[in-house]
Amino acid sequence: MRLTKLLKLFSMIFAIALVAAACGGDDDAGSVTTSECGSDLGVAMGDSVTDLSVALVAPSAKDDVAFTQSMVDSLKRLGIDPQITDGTFVVEEAAAAIRGYAEDGVNIVIAHGTQYGGSLAEIAPDFPETSFIWGTATDTQGLANVFAYYPEADQGGYVNGYIAAALAGDIGIVGPVEAGDAVAYIEGFAMGAQANGASAPSIVYTGSFSDVALATTTAQAHADNGVGALTGTSQSAVGAVTVATANDLPWFGTQSNTEAWSSDLTVASQVYHWDIVLSDMIEQIEGGTLGGEAMSLTLENGGLVMEFNGCYDLDSDIRDGAESIIADIIAGDITTK
């Protein structure tokens, strides 16, 4: 077809014109960090933990400042530069990519999307030598060569909600589809906010992970209703961040560090450090166990990291309060579900 040719031509031109982006920043561990204001948010490539080949299939763009980017950044920390097929929100396309990587003999195929579970159940048994890592999911569907992972997103949600309540009485939440870690985060957030004296936050699910216009309109409705803080999840949340910026409302991020969208108004972000569970899994795979376990990200195991924005002038009392809440959650003194 004529169009594909054009596309190839154009991509070649732009491949030549490609400017390599510089990466910097430091490698932090632990459940709480603070960014240095004005620093580059890019994650540096760590020392490689494995010689196994890795491929990633993910529903949104690899730099979405949300779900998919959190995985790409996590792999970087592990020194892994995977083959990537991103933007495959259509499950059939993702399934084809997953099967393709397995056929190519890739050792570890990461299927980064709950919706890929059905395809995986069909594909994984065909490639018993390949290890598949799938999430977010709380079980491995009984497949011996599948690892599953999920974030206890309610924990960071609770912390974010707790902080938000200290800044505003009414809070608006811009949710995507009513499913998965989005629901966990949002319900944890609402719980934390109410625990700290805010009224029940207003929750809207737009029905789309990717529709920026709906997220923007929703955030605008919240702003018109007079909320004092906003949060949201999925790659569409960037639309809500622009509304937060226009209305000078504090913003709380999740999945990745949303300072990339608003370095002024992001207060804190719950960042998924999948590397915590991935390194465990890779160790097992190298030892010959190709799957069979589901692992979760928590504040305790360092899979969930609260990243505070160094550019946001958060009252130190509030910050201290937040840190003690984190400690309580880790200690199991607060339940976030």
């Binding site: 949104s60 763009a61 979405d64 933007g87 990717s210 920026v212 216009a213 923007t216 790659q235 569409s236 960037v238 639309g239 622009t242």
Partner: peptide, 8 residues
Amino acid sequence: QLAVFQHN
């Protein structure tokens, strides 16, 4: 209007 761009 949205002041951003994203895939699709």
